[in-house]
């Protein structure tokens, strides 16, 4: 008698394949990180209101639990002195200090991506995300791109997908790597450009399997796990 893999494991493998098929290598890093890598390096200064958007689990020793895999992405590239051109995807568990409900939980999974090259423009960003949404929701799905602010990108955008109920639903944030961020990770922004995105994959998994409450995912309840 066989066992079962958690739906998110199954889903993550498949969704990573979309990116590895396009030349992206998988990278991973620490879940505990520093304030610098989680905020300052990503152009989110303590003095700016954009910092309020993310509720953070701080440790008593002043480190923190990463709020996004963008943190790890920057940290890995910066620490390893990685030289462009490169394409990376960074999956992993992230944390937000907020009340839980059917769509939010203390820990969740993100899948950040970054590609840095000489002439990689917003057309590549839109191209790869358009394809990614289609890989998740089918080729006939309606997709739209909206300007949005994320301090680590400029221009920044959000991607919406039209749900079966006719409403647009926000799916992920993305943008062109901000020159300050490129500088902070050791890349000359005069020479290189980068595209970045950072989706939370739990909700795609929920959509795929029709799950209505994210907290079930962490429940360890075999009545849930054995269904997949």
């Amino acid at each position: 008698m066989k066992g079962h893999l958690h739906p998110l494991t199954q889903f993550m493998r498949q969704t990573l394949k979309y990116f590895t098929d396009r030349g992206f290598s998988i990278a991973e890093g620490d879940q505990i990180d520093s304030e610098w890598w989680n905020f300052d390096a990503l152009n989110v200064p303590a003095t700016h209101p954009s910092r309020d958007v993310q509720d953070t689990f701080w440790l008593k020793d002043k480190r923190l639990l990463r709020t996004q895999t963008t943190t790890t992405e920057a940290h890995l590239i910066g620490d390893n002195n990685l030289k462009p051109p490169f394409r990376l995807v960074v999956p992993g568990r992230c944390f937000r200090h907020e009340a839980t409900d059917a769509t939010h939980d203390y820990n969740f999974y993100q899948l950040d991506g970054i590609a840095v090259d000489k002439n990689i423009g917003m057309d590549y960003l839109i191209g790869i995300l358009d394809g990614y949404m289609k890989s998740l929701f089918g080729n006939d799905i309606q997709i739209r791109f909206r300007p949005h602010l994320f301090p680590f990108v400029e221009p920044g955008l959000e991607v919406d997908v039209k749900m079966p109920n006719g409403k647009w639903r926000e799916m992920l944030g993305a943008g062109m790597a901000h020159p300050v961020v490129l500088k902070n990770i050791g890349i000359n922004p005069e020479k290189w450009q980068g595209i970045m995105w950072g989706p939370g994959v739990d909700r795609y998994m929920m959509y795929k399997f029709g799950l209505d409450d994210i907290r079930v995912s962490n429940s360890g309840d075999l009545r849930f796990l054995k269904q997949f």
């Binding site: 396009r22 030349g23 290598s25 191209g127 790869i128 358009d130 400029e154 221009p155 920044g156 955008l157």
Partner: peptide
């Protein structure tokens, strides 16, 4: 880059082109 964003907003993000990556080796 902030100026570029204003240009893109007027032009419309959804009117920008789409490009695909050439295949590449992964590690």
């Amino acid at each position: 880059q902030d100026i570029a964003e204003e240009v893109a907003r007027i032009f419309g993000y959804n009117n920008l082109g789409k490009s695909n990556f050439d295949p590449a080796e992964t590690t």
